[in-house]
């Protein structure tokens, strides 16, 4: 009986050792789905939403600021029934509060710090809670920083200075918006 038990024990040890290494490498390749919707700027996690008729969303979904007759809102009877104003005049200083809004719709529920840099001349930006005091048209800058809390939005004003320009000159530029989680 002792011998039988010894044999059984040896078999057991052998079996356990064998099964213990039974998870030795096999193929565990996997493929998982990944889907991303490309949506318009005003439906993004970090929305860019027009605040005045001078800003609008193009058919490609990109927010554009256009103070000219090319702006589709210019020819919109309900928004501009008199088809007023063709643009800005020379040697003047315009400021438009809240031309567009930046909002924080991130799913992560975190505050974000935002940097907006404007290229081109004669254009500057401002917002009331700007980090470095670029809070109104008098203190506007080509580079502004601000924080947007989850679910909140911040309005950005546009300053256009046409000093030294004459009709039919035009002002053009682009906005680069960077955002990252607040530290």
């Amino acid at each position: 009986m002792k011998t039988k038990l010894m044999v059984l024990m040896l078999i057991a040890i052998g079996t356990i050792a064998f099964i213990g290494t039974g998870a030795d490498f096999a193929s565990y390749d996997a493929q998982r789905n990944f889907t991303v919707a490309v949506v318009a700027d005003d439906q993004e996690f970090i929305d860019l939403t027009p605040g005045q008729y001078y800003a609008y969303i193009t058919s490609d979904g990109v927010m554009t600021i256009d103070l000219s007759t090319n702006n589709p809102n210019y020819q919109n009877e309900s928004l501009n029934p008199g088809w007023w104003g063709l643009g800005v005049s020379p040697d003047t200083h315009y400021n438009f509060d809240n031309v567009f809004y930046v909002s924080n719709g991130l799913w992560d529920n975190v505050s974000i710090d935002v940097q907006i840099v404007v290229s081109g001349t004669h254009i500057a930006l401002y917002t009331p809670d700007e980090w470095y005091g670029h809070v109104n048209s008098s203190t506007s800058s080509t580079e502004i920083y601000f924080t947007v809390d989850p679910g909140e939005q911040v309005g950005v004003g546009l300053d256009i200075n046409t000093t030294g320009m004459s009709a039919p000159d035009s002002v053009s530029g682009s906005l680069t918006i960077n955002a990252w989680p607040s530290t």
């Binding site: 998982r32 919707a37 490309v38 318009a40 700027d41 979904g61 799913w107």
Partner: peptide, 24 residues
């Protein structure tokens, strides 16, 4: 029971997407 990455309005928990001409 499989991992799924879904940044669309079809995500069961959230709604949204990413904008054109941007880097996320």
């Amino acid at each position: 029971g499989k991992l799924e990455i879904n940044i669309t309005p079809e995500n069961p928990l959230y709604d949204g997407g990413v904008a054109p001409d941007s880097i996320h």
